[in-house]
């Protein structure tokens, strides 16, 4: 709900033309300030780690990270200039771009591990569920955190790939934290969860029947960092330095999983015991353009948008 409202809000902001705060232009001798809107989840660990390691400050960027509630809630913030950089899942960005929002992706965010059954995202059923494969999800109630977004389109892709009828899946909107309890109480038949809820659900006896990100595309790019078109054209040098710092942060995170597990404790409340065990996503520096195309095709196919946006204009 909140996400859909945020997209509406973004459109309203645009319509009102109230890009209130102009992005800061460079002041000589001062580091450039960047305020980035992120979500307090595992996915954004590299940017926190990169900030800690000084990858941004050594490129003369004074990075401030503020956490928002949802990925699409950040989009209006970037469009209005409250944030210079935002983090959002790829489907939300495609939806925004197709609605004409002036956004430009500047860096990869997070990607699937590409290994079925060993991803950081999955569809979980109760241990005694009659559902054995993704195809059995047809006719079942499956919870996703936001309807008409990356959750339901990728779960449908899993069902399609397994030979089931994707149109027969009944999606229910629930917040991730509420899903394991809803599954246990039998209010839904399956839940789509990401870490840390995925390991919580499997520890509680749940069974993974589909790795929806893996089934959608090999090494799916799930989310990305983006800026406003305005900043991308007015200060390309700053955006370039951010992209470089981000690439270094992503590679560093990819190479140092132990430090990633440690940095989680600085911006989330994930306990060290849980952090030690959860499945980390992949953080390649490059966006998998083919997988973005796949997500756009799915969004059109599932009726989220009528026409795919110009992907080359959206991607860096």
């Amino acid at each position: 709900m909140r996400r859909r409202f945020s997209v509406l809000l973004a459109v309203a902001l645009l319509a009102a033309g109230c890009g209130s705060d102009e992005p800061s232009t460079s002041t000589p001798g001062q580091p450039d300030k960047i305020s980035a809107g992120v979500i307090a989840i595992v996915d954004v660990a590299p940017i926190y780690l990169g900030k800690q390691k000084g990858f941004f400050s050594q490129r003369n960027i004074d990075l401030t990270l503020s956490t928002s509630q949802g990925g699409a809630a950040i989009v209006p913030g970037v469009v209005s200039g409250q944030f210079q950089i935002g983090f959002s899942n790829m489907t939300s960005l495609l939806l925004g771009a197709s609605k004409g929002l002036p956004i430009k992706i500047v860096s990869n965010g997070v990607a699937s591990t590409g290994a079925a059954g060993k991803d950081y995202s999955g569809v979980v059923v109760k241990a005694d569920s009659p559902v054995r494969t993704a195809a059995d999800l047809a006719g079942r109630r499956v919870s996703v955190n936001t309807l008409q977004n990356i959750g339901d389109t990728t779960v449908r892709a899993s069902v399609r790939k397994a030979g089931g009828d994707p149109k027969a899946v009944k999606f229910v909107e629930l917040a991730f934290p509420d899903m394991p309890a809803a599954l246990q109480a039998g209010r839904v038949d399956a839940i789509w969860v990401v870490e840390p809820f995925l390991s919580a659900a499997t520890t509680a006896g749940g069974r993974v029947v589909a790795s929806n990100y893996v089934d959608t595309a090999p090494d799916l790019t799930v989310a990305a960092y983006f800026t406003s078109k305005q900043l991308a054209t007015s200060n390309p040098d700053l955006v370039k330095r951010f992209t470089e710092a981000m690439a270094q942060s992503l590679s560093y995170a990819e190479a140092h999983p132990d430090e990633v597990r440690q940095v989680l404790g600085t911006y989330t409340q994930i306990s060290p015991e849980v952090a030690a065990k959860l499945t980390l996503p992949k953080w390649p520096a490059e966006i998998n353009r083919q997988s973005v195309q796949t997500l756009a095709d799915l969004a059109v196919g599932d009726g989220l948008i009528e026409k795919a946006p110009d992907i080359n204009a959206l991607l860096p």
Binding site: A40, P177, P196, T268, Q269, V274
Partner: peptide, 18 residues
């Protein structure tokens, strides 16, 4: 809304499954 404070910490604890 996510302005800094105890409410936001509650939301973060929720998304961290804590």
């Amino acid at each position: 809304i996510g302005t800094p404070g105890l409410g936001k910490e509650i939301a973060i604890a929720q998304t961290s499954n804590a």
